[in-house]
């Protein structure tokens, strides 16, 4: 494993550029439109899982309500583009900001809570958002939802075809990774990680935990909102039941399986879960049974997920306290 990591470090830039180039070419190489649509789903959920990972994996707060922030992003986009004709690209940051504000609202009561209390509050908040979406008819269309959300224009191309919409998701995904990488290496990121590992110790060292925890929630919510905004025109029709707790648990499953506490984890998780979902569609309920078994197995064998941060509290009670060399000491965020 460390040989792979060493190799990765040496040739980092070239490897990432090669992957990026391959991803750009993908929709033109793959012929079946359905598969391009699956690729879009993978990218979409990779970023959404990434946003959840920014909260769960880095500040250690276990948020279960990502579906709520996702919903806000989607509805903001839908409402403003269908009612007021606002440009999609402008709406991306706007949705993010809206979602971040709600994130702050959710964070405030949770600051003094931890563990299960916090998780339940996030879940409750997500459900309240969904129920409001379902009942606030004049704004959200209620049970009817909002339909005919216009497709955005990308460099002069109408993104109605999945293979053009793909690039919107790719763009957002790459942006997310670049920004998050930066943030994690900064003071803010280090503060988050310290809170995750041991909140009391962090506080005693002068880290303003409340401030950073709220910031963390807002950050995760912001990106979930952006993804939601991108999601709305893609499915062309949104309605409250698409943002239920099941969606939230789905995203959670992705980071549990793929890995928490690293940037690669959610991407891997999104790939695995989406591929399993689509290829095993014919199995109906057995599909979920398989997920559930995988989640439980993950908890038993590797709690931080496949590509998760092994040198952290996420890895469970099996942290090895042997002295680590400088090279591998940093958790690669």
């Amino acid at each position: 494993m460390s040989k792979v990591q060493a190799f990765y470090h040496k040739h980092r830039t070239i490897l990432l550029l090669a992957v990026f180039a391959a991803l750009c070419v993908l929709p033109f190489v793959v012929t079946k439109a359905l598969f391009v649509r699956y690729a879009c789903n993978i990218l979409l959920f990779a970023t959404l899982a990434g946003s959840l990972n920014a909260i769960n994996g880095y500040s250690g707060q276990m948020c279960l309500g990502q579906a709520g922030f996702f919903a806000i992003g989607a509805y903001v986009c839908a409402i403003f583009s269908t009612r007021f004709g606002v440009n999609f690209w402008l709406l991306l940051p706007i949705s993010g900001v809206f979602a971040a504000m709600v994130g702050l609202l959710v964070a405030l009561p949770t600051l003094k809570l931890q563990g299960i209390y916090l998780s339940i509050v996030t879940l409750g908040a997500s459900e309240i958002i969904r129920i409001i979406a379902q009942t606030w008819e004049p704004v959200t269309g209620g049970a009817l939802g909002i339909k005919n959300i216009p497709y955005p224009w990308l460099f002069g191309l109408d993104t109605f075809r999945p293979k053009y919409y793909y690039f919107i998701f790719l763009l957002i995904g790459v942006l997310f990774l670049l920004v998050t990488n930066r943030v994690l290496k900064s003071r803010v990121g280090r503060a988050w990680i310290s809170i995750r590992e041991d909140q009391i110790a962090a506080k005693s060292l002068g880290v303003q935990t409340s401030f950073y925890k709220s910031l963390n929630f807002m950050y995760g919510a912001f990106w979930a909102g952006v993804v939601g905004c991108a999601y709305a025109p893609f499915v062309n029709y949104i309605e409250a039941s698409q943002f239920s707790t099941d969606t939230g648990f789905n995203v959670l499953a992705m980071i549990v399986i793929g890995g928490q506490g690293t940037l690669l984890g959610p991407i891997l998780g999104s790939m695995i879960v989406t591929v399993l979902t689509e290829s095993l569609r014919f199995l109906d309920n057995w599909r979920y049974v398989i997920y559930a078994v995988i989640i439980i197995m993950m908890m038993w064998l590797r709690p931080q997920g496949i590509a998760g941060a092994s040198h952290s509290v996420l890895a469970g009670g099996k942290i090895k306290r042997k002295p680590v060399r400088r090279e591998g000491a940093r958790s690669h965020g």
Binding site: R37, Y237, Q242
Partner: peptide, 14 residues
């Protein structure tokens, strides 16, 4: 689910 339905409809249409 309307979203799943749209995905399937698109694949039929293509």
């Amino acid at each position: 689910d309307p979203v799943v339905s749209s995905t399937m409809a698109t694949s039929f249409a293509e």
